[in-house]
Design a protein around this nucleic acid. Structure first.
Lengths: 348, 348
DNA sequence: TGGGTTTGATAAACCGGTATAGCTCCTGCA
DNA sequence: TGCAGGAGCTATACCGGTTTATCAAACCCA
């Protein structure tokens, strides 16, 4: 009882292969009665298209790819990718398109993968993350004519399709809140400057500083690691004029920063307010729980998938879709500067 | 300049398609001289096999699948999957086999995916994680005749291939260490009892308790969430006879437990030692840093991929490969019970 | 020197679909 | 009544590889 093919269905229904193909794909060429009959037989024999056969004839593969170029050890901690992935899949599953995921070490390897995928016809399109300034992947993908969607960053003049949230607004919502609390010395422990989103956040803070009357608003870049996050925090808190609030570009760095504050006897949020530019279970596990910017990452992924399918259907168009704005979830790590706290039982 | 096919190579080399196929696949049927010539031309034209065409003729697809059945929100925090994935990929990339990843909500959906993959010929085999007792997936995969490897749990009588580490030994190494420090009241905040590894850990502790002279060694099951981890810890620490050490089945729960201890004024490791049955950046970020059991998850994944490829090559065999034993990484959260600590600057 | 085996290569079938040219009715309209 | 046009279907080519049957030439040994 091997898997049935459309030929089997054809004999059983007493029609030709072509008729079966028409019926199964909802194309004209067969009467409604015949179509009905064929569909029923296909159902009975539990027929499923052989993906390779279909991919060979037509040129679509019903599969899209996503490559993440980061060393594995920095991956798992952030729920970002897990949520993004589920979102992407939920967007794809409607059309029962499958997803190829690859984790590689660097961008060079990533580009190599795109080349291979294209020449082997393994994917119909790809989803890009972590867009850098002057990202070489953009040109490469254009050259390969491989449909692509950029997550989190306008495709720019190069004009790949994109799905993005407004980093600028997000940063503003954080610093405006801190300024409203009375903070004037706000530091920003940023990520790697090669990422476009890092750049946008830095610029947003710099631009807003005068308007909000901030005395000092330095952005200090890091490699996103907990170690550098801690080191920079240590430096900031050792200055004679300490910041009264620090914004971290990731939850991991924020947690590391909190640890440093504790270790130095700086009370949070009494002496220092902390905000994480990314929410996760991590921020909630801490004592005090960290105020964080929550983004709907799942939805982000879902929309990216949706846009990619549209692009694949019609590669001529360029779609730039803006997703819901991130919202600031205020928890226990932010307060007016210098606030005397009612004694909590040993804050940690 | 469309992608070259073997027909193009054949004309250019002045031979038949068949000869080209033989040459490119290193099979006998062509002379060394001709083979050489064909390979050079293929190289020049930068030929790559069309994956669909190859999959159609032969029956392999050069692609394996992995389905993770967990709600997305519990995923990302643990680096487990990220490391596992990279490991799997490193094992596959040698043979340039691609990986299909799917995150679904439950086992029913997972089984549905296996059925679909099989009937659509999308994968040559699959990798299973989170084996439960009486796991329905085992029978299903046998029925589908889909090659499979179980990660972290012997295939059992059902006899799927497997790659496993010794949970029993791992648990023993933890409790023997704690017992050696002098602990006699050790509690175990376990995961979900439906998982085989949870069962094995519980049994290991129960069996070892008398030998180690443990007064009390309860295993309390949870859903692996930080909330339940915290709740159980609260209950344990409210008893008149508190445990002096707690072993947590995951790093997230251990962190939540640490938070509860702090909140209740129980000093760690002075009054309570904490061990996490899984290591990650989380455990290192805490103050005190948590003693944890480190497993080489990457290697785990790599070996699983390796075994899967062997199984695919020869489905008759059953491989059960044991990986390197996990090791206990001692940090700051464990000490002899009742130890007076030299004052640390505000331990958190 | 002749029959049998080995070597190197070819032509053609095949995998399971899709696309298309073409054929046979049937209908409608002049 | 004759014919254009369309609906409904069949036959067949095709996608890009792999595999098999076949065959000619070379080789081997008695």
């Amino acid at each position: 009882m091997a898997r049935p093919t459309i030929a089997d269905i054809a004999t059983r229904a007493g029609v030709s292969k072509g008729a079966v193909s028409f019926a199964l794909n909802g194309r004209p060429g067969v009467s409604d009665a015949t179509r009905e009959r064929i569909l029923k037989i296909a159902e009975q024999m539990s027929w499923r298209p052989h993906s390779a056969a279909r991919a060979l004839g037509a040129s679509r593969v019903d599969s899209v790819g996503m490559v993440i170029a980061r060393p594995a050890r920095t991956l798992g901690v952030e729920p970002f990718f897990a949520h993004l992935l589920s979102g992407v899949q939920s967007g794809l599953s409607a059309e029962s398109i499958s997803l190829q995921l690859l984790i590689v070490e660097d961008t060079a390897a990533e580009i190599e993968v795109y080349r291979r995928w294209t020449s082997e016809h393994r994917v119909d399109g790809v989803i890009l993350v972590d867009l850098t300034v002057k990202d070489p992947r953009v040109d490469e993908l254009k050259a390969l004519e491989l449909p692509a969607v950029v997550i989190g960053g306008r495709g720019g003049k190069g004009a790949l399709a994109s799905v993005w949230a407004d980093d600028r607004d997000a940063m503003l919502s954080i610093v405006e809140y801190l300024a409203a609390l009375g903070h004037r010395r706000i530091a920003h422990v940023a990520g790697t400057p090669i990422f476009q989103h890092t750049q946008r956040r830095i610029r947003a803070l710099r631009d807003a500083a005068p308007r909000l009357g901030l005395v000092d608003a330095p952005s200090l870049t890091t490699d996103f690691s907990d170690a550098e996050g801690a080191a920079i925090t240590r430096r900031l808190l050792s200055q004679s004029e300490r910041p009264t609030a620090i914004v971290y570009d990731s939850d991991v760095m924020a947690v590391a920063g909190l640890g440093v504050a504790m270790e130095m006897g700086v009370s949070v949020p009494g002496d220092l307010s902390i905000v994480a530019f990314d929410d996760s279970i991590l921020t909630q596990l801490m004592h005090p729980a960290l105020t964080a910017l929550s983004r709907d990452t799942f939805e982000f992924g879902r929309q990216a998938a949706e846009v990619l399918l549209e692009i694949i259907a019609d590669p001529a168009q360029v779609i730039n879709r803006r997703t819901a704005d991130p919202v600031l979830t205020v928890r226990e790590s932010t307060a007016p500067p210098g606030l005397m706290l009612p004694s909590r039982p040993k804050p940690i």
